[in-house]
Design a protein around this nucleic acid. Structure first.
Lengths: 354, 354
DNA sequence: TTTTTTTGGTCTGGACGGGACAAAAATTGC
DNA sequence: GCAATTTTTGTCCCGTCCAGACCAAAAAAA
């Protein structure tokens, strides 16, 4: 199986040795297909800015793809044809093989000491596209591991939002699944709040969900009071029965700002060496808790008991935070992008060679 | 194993769906590499006539191949680099997969009811190149099946000559092998006579060989007399101990002319429905003997008792003759070219679909 | 209604490919 | 052994094709 794939990857490399010019075009067209598939209908101009390629080239390539019936044009923009989707699926595999993504995933999982690493394809500067690709991969993995009795916890944030958005549910067997938001409201955008995401996800799965109608940040006294409320109790019980958790990873400095911490509190957290934030905790680069937000949600103890832990995070600026989080639990599954992956791989190779 | 290969073939097809323009260039460069590897050193002009492509295009492609260090230029012409050879080996596999040659071989072997079919790559109009490719494949197969005690019989003809010429012997373990020419002199060119070929082959293998110093065509009386000669007796004994036979296939009409038959004898043979000639026999399209040349050599009885039967023949004009010969024995291994193979495959599909 | 997209058209400068030719070296013929 | 011929690589120029820029019409969105 493994040998099979690496073999094909080698064949591609040989093919490109015979014709190196084709390599970039191959990747270019793959990216076009991939992006059109993600945000169709889309026009030349938007594609050109997303890929940072001149519009004329985009035109040339899309014309070729249209000739080959992989793309179609509508009044609203270009869309991918059914055949295009089939080809894209296959090319996805080729792209993985060519870039050696499967091997990188294994090396990284081993190096980071976690269960699995999933590297989402697409190596663009456009963060939205990259995040969307991460979301697609994470959602596919999520659908693979959940069953009809799963209790799924999700946090807020754009990464998790992307997972939910890209989720493609085919069967209707998830009626008994429960979705639990593990954070309250995240301050700013409503579309990224865990409550909103839980609702959307539950709709896609046609299943039940709980809302966690508490603010993101509370005083200790309030928490104790709230914990006695019957409805909140129920939610807390549910949180403790979560078997699958999908969560985002943030840089401590940015997350602290977003949560509206006081300046001195922020400084205190920074002084303690915080680099990462996830599900209400701040961690230093060793993965140790340096600060905890008083709120209703999943706690670290429960986290470590949870069967499936899916961390979703991309963007080169989050590398430090991501590495910190990978130290939390060996059951972790990390879904990230090519850029982050190659950055960590670089580090791996540096250490290996001295 | 099989699934593995067909998978890779499919991947290639998908790749070419994404970029059909590359398909012909891929094949073009493959053919250039292949031909340079066969007849290096070689210049642009000869390549251009062999491939029936304008010299300017050859130049463009070879320049690219030189850039990629797959070809090198010398004063005598272009040669293939070591890396080029490595790449060519891999591309050979790709070409096989892309054209589905392995599957075709199996279908044909099954359809023709013989042990194995080997289809030599290269689909050119240039007969010499095609024959050379056939020779390469046949010689590789030959080296695979013989051991240090093999007794190899060979006939004359350009096909067998090509096998001998392309043979690449690496080890020195063939000292005890014996090479036996199974025909006398074939009339015209000395370089194609089985005696000459036996000598060259024996030199390559650093082994013993026998010469068969009798004319190709004899009267019955002479044969009986010769058979009493001690030296000839020995040769005949050796012929009867052959375990591997490499032989060419001819069209009966052409072979008859070459052997210098009388006009009425020729007409007689034609009237009996002869379409093929091999090792001194003429066969009709059902594979039945219609005429036999009086000579010293392998007889049909011994032929059918021989373990390894390797028929080497290419060229679309020989299809009928080849098909006749395949009916002789189910142990037969046929080495032929893409053109012949696709012609027989066409017939197979016609019968299959009604 | 205005604005923003979309696709498709067109023109231009420049690169690149293709054909003919030239020079050099090796091979062949005498 | 020398000359003629063939084969080689390399040069030059012209035509074609392609990327870039701009524009136009039309439709969706605001």
């Amino acid at each position: 199986m493994n040998e099979d794939k690496s073999k094909t990857g080698d064949f591609l490399k040989v093919l490109f040795k015979l014709a190196p010019e084709f390599q970039e075009i191959f990747i270019e067209r793959y990216e076009i297909l991939k992006i059109v598939n993600m945000i169709e209908p889309v026009g030349r101009r938007i594609l050109s800015v997303k890929m940072d390629i001149s519009e004329r080239i985009i035109r040339k390539e899309t014309d070729k793809l249209k000739e080959n019936k992989l793309l179609d044009t509508t009044l609203k923009g270009m869309i991918i044809t059914d055949e295009g989707k089939k080809v894209l699926e296959e090319i996805d595999k080729l792209y993985h093989m060519f870039k050696g993504i499967d091997e990188s995933e294994k090396i990284l999982a081993d190096y980071l000491g976690i269960k699995k690493v999933i590297i989402a394809p697409l190596n663009l500067d456009d963060d939205k596209m990259v995040l969307s690709s991460i979301g697609e991969c994470a959602s596919k993995y999520l659908m693979k591991i959940i069953n009809d009795k799963s209790i799924i916890g999700i946090t807020g944030g754009s990464s998790v939002q992307s997972v939910i958005e890209r989720l493609n549910v085919k069967s209707k067997k998830y009626r008994d699944v429960k979705i639990i938001p593990t954070r309250g409201s995240l301050g700013d955008k409503a579309e990224y709040q865990s409550n909103t995401l839980a609702e959307i996800l539950a709709n896609k799965l046609s299943c039940n969900y709980k809302l966690l109608s508490t603010p993101d940040k509370l005083s200790e006294g309030t928490i104790k009071e709230l914990q006695n409320e019957p409805e909140i109790r129920e939610t807390i019980n549910l949180i403790n029965s979560i078997d699958t958790l999908v969560f985002g990873i943030g840089r401590s400095d940015i997350m602290a700002k977003r949560r509206g911490l006081y300046v001195d509190e922020m400084k205190m957290i920074q002084d303690k060496g915080a680099v990462a934030e996830a599900f209400g905790y701040y961690f230093n680069s060793l993965g140790e808790v340096v600060h905890e937000i008083n709120t209703i949600g999943i706690d670290l103890h429960k986290f470590k008991q949870t069967k499936n832990l899916i961390a979703v995070a991309g963007g080169i600026e989050k590398v430090e935070a991501i590495r910190a989080i990978t130290k939390l639990d060996s059951k972790l599954v990390l879904v990230t992008d090519e850029n982050v992956a190659s950055e960590i791989l670089k580090d791996f190779r540096r250490r290996k060679n001295g």
